[in-house]
Design a protein around this nucleic acid. Structure first.
Length: 414
DNA sequence: TCTGGGGTCCTAGGACCC
DNA sequence: TCTGGGGTCCTAGGACCC
């Protein structure tokens, strides 16, 4: 079997870099990458967390995901700028277009991460190719990337996480012991804070220590996820770079409300606004789902969820909403709510249903929803709204992943 | 004005069936 | 009156990723 050559390309501080590039191109003098700066959500809407940070901000120990409040405690003169997701999508697309010149086998892992299979390159050293790609992205697009190179995706990804920014690293199997094993165990892909605690609790602090554990022991302790991280620690991973995104398994939207919701009527409106988006996205991919689930988080951050399997799959706003509402009424204890979520899963294609007799029953409703979708795609989400939202102060449709491309999301498996 | 939103996968316990 | 055990489905919760 031929050894593969896999690249993992990772945009350095993606949102922040892209924001900096855009602003420089539009006449701003200060480069956000060179000062303590973060891209952060709107605190007045209770979305105030750090989405991306500059390297100077990182020196203040500011972490992605922490509240802007606490980030400011660490660095009082922190610059905070709001996110512009459409811009970032464009930057990401430009990068992928450039990468396609080097290999057709490209997997978009997330908006700022890409795997590429370059096993076919025979006429020049792969390191040369990596440098060329890195320099071209810098020169033509204005931002820097790290490139990790190895013979599988896991090792390539680990390598791109080594020293940043604007670097290329290799991590071939014969380099694991020297380059990866000394690292703290929480640096390993799929070892999060909970697993770190468990491992540290038994004296395991480095990736090397995890790698040397007995396979049966780790299985009896941490089950399947244990085997996975043990294999990762040993550099074992052999998934392919997949060009085509996996079929979507669930679609969900959620929102943290700008105030705690304490009455049922308003709660139902948030569920309706979320159901609108979930249903529209479901219809957009031509699927129908059978399981509807609702989850809520109360003001003390305690969350709970409830789900129901329908007798027949649906893509109807009405069915999704009515199910969500029932589920909500069954679990809500009256405590003020901070966040609502609605999701649908267990998809099947809608083709069979299209042909079935059941269809006639709901044909009118279905046509209406399709027409509304078309108008909303063409003229904007608020071009047609339900009257109950008028003067309510609640957005009639809530949720992201709004555009055509249901974005190829990553899975927790590489 | 402290703590987002989008996903996937796994586990554990109970129901239910043979 | 010695209470099997395997399999599947369902559900809620939790872990991880960007």
């Amino acid at each position: 079997m031929n050894k593969r050559i896999i690249f993992h390309i990772d945009v350095n501080s993606a949102y922040l870099s892209w924001e900096a590039v855009y602003r420089l191109q539009h006449g701003e003098k200060i480069d956000l990458r060179e000062i303590p700066a973060v891209v952060g959500g709107d605190e007045s809407k209770r979305h105030g967390i750090v989405l991306a940070k500059s390297i100077p901000a990182k020196r203040y120990k500011i972490k992605t995901g922490e509240s802007l409040y606490s980030a400011r405690q660490k660095c009082p003169n922190l610059t905070v700028v709001p996110p512009n997701y459409e811009r970032y999508m464009k930057a990401s697309n430009s990068m992928v277009d450039l990468l396609k010149e080097y290999s057709p086998l490209i997997q978009r892992y997330s908006v700022d991460e890409v795997f590429m299979d370059l096993s076919h390159i025979k006429d020049r050293p792969v390191l040369d190719v990596a440098y060329e790609i890195k320099e071209r992205i810098k020169k033509e697009l204005g931002f820097t990337v790290n490139i990790g190179i190895s013979s599988n995706k896991l090792l390539a990804k680990m390598a791109s996480d080594f020293k940043k920014p604007d670097r290329i690293h290799t991590l071939f199997p014969d380099e694991i012991q020297e380059k990866m094993w000394p690292l703290p165990v929480e640096k390993l892909f799929m070892v999060g804070s909970r697993t770190q605690k468990k491992l540290n609790g038994r004296g395991i602090f480095t990736i090397g220590q995890l790698a040397k554990l007995d396979r049966e022991y780790i299985y009896s302790w941490l089950k399947k996820p244990g085997i996975m991280i043990w294999e990762y620690a040993n550099g074992i991973e052999n998934s392919q770079v997949r060009k085509d995104p996996d079929p979507v398994k669930s679609i969900g939207n959620s929102t943290t409300t700008s105030y705690d919701v304490d009455n049922r009527k308003e709660a139902h409106m948030f569920l309706l606004a979320l159901s609108e988006m979930v249903a529209m996205r479901t219809r957009n991919i031509g699927k129908m789902g059978r399981v509807i689930s609702v989850s809520i988080k109360d003001k003390d951050f305690y969350s709970c969820s409830h789900q129901k399997k329908l007798d027949v799959a649906t893509d109807s706003t009405k069915v999704i909403y009515e199910t969500a509402r029932k589920l909500f009424d069954e679990i809500w204890d009256g405590k003020p709510i901070r966040r609502f979520a609605v999701s649908i899963s267990e998809f099947c294609s809608n083709e069979l249903y299209q042909l079935s007799l059941l269809k006639n029953y709901n044909q009118r409703e279905e046509k209406l929803e399709k027409v509304i979708d078309a108008i909303r795609y063409k003229y904007g989400y608020n071009s047609i709204i339900r009257s109950c939202f008028l003067h309510s102060g609640i957005k009639p449709i809530i949720g992201g992943v709004t555009t055509e491309e249901e974005y190829p999301m990553m899975s927790s498996i590489i």
